[in-house]
Each structure stands twice: as structure tokens, then as C-alpha cells.
Amino acid sequence: MTLYGIGLGPGEADLVTVRGKQLLESVDVVYSPGRLSRTVALNHVPESKIGDLEFPMTRNVEKLRAAWKRAAAEIAPHAIDGDAAFVTLGDPNVYSTFGHLRRTLDAFHPAVDVEIVPGVSAMTAFATALGVEVEAGAGLALREAADGHAPTGPDRMILFKVTDAPSTHERLVEAGYDVKFGRRLFMEQGETVITDDPSELAERDYYTLAYAEKRGVTTESATAAFGDGVADGGHS
């Protein structure tokens, strides 16, 4: 039958899409790669329906490949004989663990049909949380900034995995950027923090992102700005 890769959104249970919720309720088993995604899924399915998978906390490539091979072997029979889901925070195709599983299934279990259900990603939800408008015509780059990394170049960037906010902030400011941070945006687990003060984020947290914009950058608006006292149709 089918394995559904379902994006759960940034972490709040009611930000799962309607399609995602319907499929979670209809499949035979829901696999979760971690505690946070499991917590969100439990808002929509009973615990008896959850299939947990174990992955080692390591960067050793061979150990990780072995873990994904075991996961694929566990999931494949359920996805062939019935319907199963693998859930991730955010979107399954955007910096997600689901890509590892999909490639492993393609290599060792090609009979498994896979369907992706997109989810709201923190990389898009950031604009609402941080009060940022990315106007039509404006460029926006997505970069990883773990361990104090501070990529530069584009006028506007979303940086994710900002695990050393003070170091990233210092380097970006020196390069001419204004920076605003968001931690655990739209997540039920942990404290949500929105700030332009990196000292508030000295503690490392994988779920931290930043919006960086070059000082003085301008964008021509797609529509003319309305002046004070001007109503629709140009009548005051």
C-alpha cells in the first residue's frame, strides 16, 4: 500500500494540516523518529498506534546508515501490507530526517510506495512569529548556521540550527546585518523566545533560527503605499 511522510508543522498540534490529520487517523501505524514529533502525533492518534524507532546520537556515518536500514526493514512490511506514516516536525522534504528513510527504502525496499504530505515549516512560519514581511520581489536565502557559523552575502537570510547565537550575531553585525532571533517558534515543547539580544539565547538549542537583513536594503513595493487619510478609491 503506502508509506506517508507527514509533516507535522513546527510543533503546535493544531498546525498539522487537515490532510495530515486525516491520514494520521487512517493509517495502521505511525512511526516517529523522536520525542518531539511523537508528542505532536499523540494529539491525533492513540499511543497504541505509535511505532517508535531508535537512532543513535552520533555523527558516525556507518552507524547512522545501519540505523536507517533497520528502520526501513521495520517499516516496509507495514507499508506493503497496509498503510503507514512516518512523521517529522516541519516539512518532510525540507532539512528533514525523512529523506534518509526515503533513500534507504528506495535502495532496499523498492516495492514500498511513498507519498509526501507537506507541513508548515519554521522556515516559513518565522515571518509571522518575528513580525517580518518578505515583500513580493524580495530575495530570501536559507542557510544553516550551527556552531556560531554566520554565512553572508544575500540581502536577507533565514538561518536555522543557530546553536551559538552570540557568535553568529557578532559576526553578522560586523558584516553589516541587523539580526532577530526566534527560538522554538510555534512549539508546545519548551519556551518560545523572540529577541534581538543574543545574550538571551546563550544556552544552545537546535530549534533556534535567525532572520538577518543587510542594513539599508530596500525593496520596491509591488503596490503603492497609501498616504494618511486616503481611503479606498482615493477619497478622503
Rank of each mutant, 00 (worst) to 15 (best):
T195N: 02
P198Q: 08
D113Y: 08
E135Y: 15
A225M: 12
S199C: 03
Y211I: 15
Q189L: 12
I50M: 09
F226M: 15
I50D: 05
P46H: 02
L36K: 14
A73W: 07
L64F: 10
V87T: 03
R215K: 13
V94Q: 10
A122W: 07
E133D: 14
V40G: 00
D196E: 05
R38L: 10
A111W: 02
E74L: 11
R19A: 13
A222V: 15
H100E: 10
T168C: 07
A72K: 08
E203R: 15
W68L: 04
V40H: 02
P46R: 01
V45Y: 04
A141K: 05
D228M: 12
H109W: 00
A212C: 07
E170I: 05
P154K: 12
D228Q: 12
E135I: 14
T97Q: 09
D14K: 14
V94A: 06
P33K: 00
T2L: 02
Q22I: 11
A202H: 13
T39G: 13
R35W: 07
H169V: 03
M57D: 15
L24P: 08
E220M: 08
S121L: 09
F86Y: 07
R183F: 08
H149K: 15
F108H: 14
M1N: 06
Y206I: 06
E200H: 13
S221H: 13
G99E: 13
L8Q: 04
D106C: 04
D205W: 13
E144M: 15
T195W: 06
V18Y: 12
L140R: 09
G233H: 03
F160K: 08
A107M: 07
P151V: 06
A79V: 00
F108C: 07
G190V: 08
R171G: 11
E174F: 05
W68H: 14
D197W: 06
T152K: 01
R35C: 03
G190C: 07
M123G: 04
Y31K: 03
D91E: 03
T104Y: 02
L105W: 04
G9N: 09
K21N: 13
P92R: 00
R19G: 05
E188Y: 12
G153K: 02
S26Y: 00
T88E: 01
T124V: 11
R183L: 05
F186K: 11
T192F: 05
M57K: 09
E170H: 01
